[in-house]
Design a protein around this nucleic acid. Structure first.
Lengths: 187, 187
DNA sequence: ATAGCAAATGTCACAAATGTCGTATACTAT
DNA sequence: ATAGTATACGACATTTGTGACATTTGCTAT
């Protein structure tokens, strides 16, 4: 099953490591919110309701429903630079995704909820400093680590740190340096 | 296909997160009211009947069918233009949000899931045509209406339509014109 | 600890609903 | 016209709901 917005009793039974029969009872009893298909009343549960149910009962949340904690989002308008960074990080075992413009950065950030984002400060149409301020003012992103990678001078890097970046390195960079910082931040 | 008054079995299958075959069975059995086209008997269901069906069975109603989902995301790097558009639409009762760069556009699109997005084709760092292609290739944004608002020539507007925009108007525009198009698209 | 009890969960078999696949046909956009 | 996509339908595979009953779990009193 690819990326459905609802779950069957069977799906939930697997996730919760419980018998299908039990899931149906949960739904019937009302402790798990669900709805029925018209046919014979086969049950469906929306992803949201399932998540709420898990949290309510302090049950472990399956990988697929958690923000992707090993994913790194690489934001750089220079595709070569982006893929260079990706290569280094991927080799070190990180799941990587790249965004070469502001729109992709925004949507992928929301969609994948990566653990870390590398950010080029000077992208056309996107003020890196403004973006930092914006992100740091949102509760939603308080778990997100930001690593600024920029060709600007040291003052700018310092300013980025002041505005909330967790680290900043200058371009060009040593692979090892990049990797050690990323490792630190994702620990 | 400007505004769909009716739905195909495929549409409904997507909305209900169910197999197309099942939808056809529902219709055949009569639990979902529909009608058949003369050709081979392809099925259609009116929006109304579908809504009634969803309510009847206590099934979740997709965002797009909620009568109050009138959120519009206005994407334009010119803040004056963005707020001008916003003023017009807000006055007509639409919930509006603006994004003045690609990042905000991307994140707000994911976050708010608006029914309609107005899009300026020429934003710094963001190729509007590429963006259109990107959005239209994602199932997730299948039901997002896109209204291109651009100062570019007619050829560009036509190209935008080809790439998937639901409508395109040129800057500057008449308030009434904007409003009538938005009304059409959100009906 | 242990026994006893009630509630929750698991097991099983069967019928019904839903999913999958392949093919023929209809629709849609150049 | 023509290509590409979507749809219907049959046949078959898989999943699901249900009831009856077995087993486990959690709790209490002893």
């Amino acid at each position: 099953m690819a990326k459905a917005r609802s779950l069957t009793t069977g799906d939930i039974a697997q996730y919760c490591d419980v018998n299908l029969r039990t899931v149906i009872r949960w739904i019937d009893k009302g402790s798990l919110k669900g709805y029925k298909l018209p046919g014979r009343g086969n049950n469906r549960v929306t992803n949201e309701d399932f998540l709420a149910f898990l949290k309510e009962n302090n049950m472990p949340i399956p990988e697929e429903f958690l923000p992707d904690n090993k994913t790194i989002l690489i934001v750089d308008d220079d595709e070569n630079m982006a893929s260079a960074i990706k290569r280094v990080l991927k080799k070190a075992g990180f799941e990587c995704d790249t965004a070469v413009n502001g729109f992709l950065a925004g949507s992928k950030l929301m969609q994948r909820q990566p653990a870390l984002m590398t950010l080029d400060l000077s992208m056309p149409g996107l003020n890196g400093f403004e973006l930092l301020k914006h992100l740091k003012s949102q509760d939603e992103f308080n778990h997100l680590k930001i690593l600024v990678i920029s060709a600007l001078n040291q003052d700018s890097l310092d300013k980025a740190i002041t505005l909330g970046a967790n680290a900043a390195i200058s371009k060009p960079f040593e692979k090892e340096h990049l990797l050690s910082i990323v490792n630190q931040l994702t620990e």
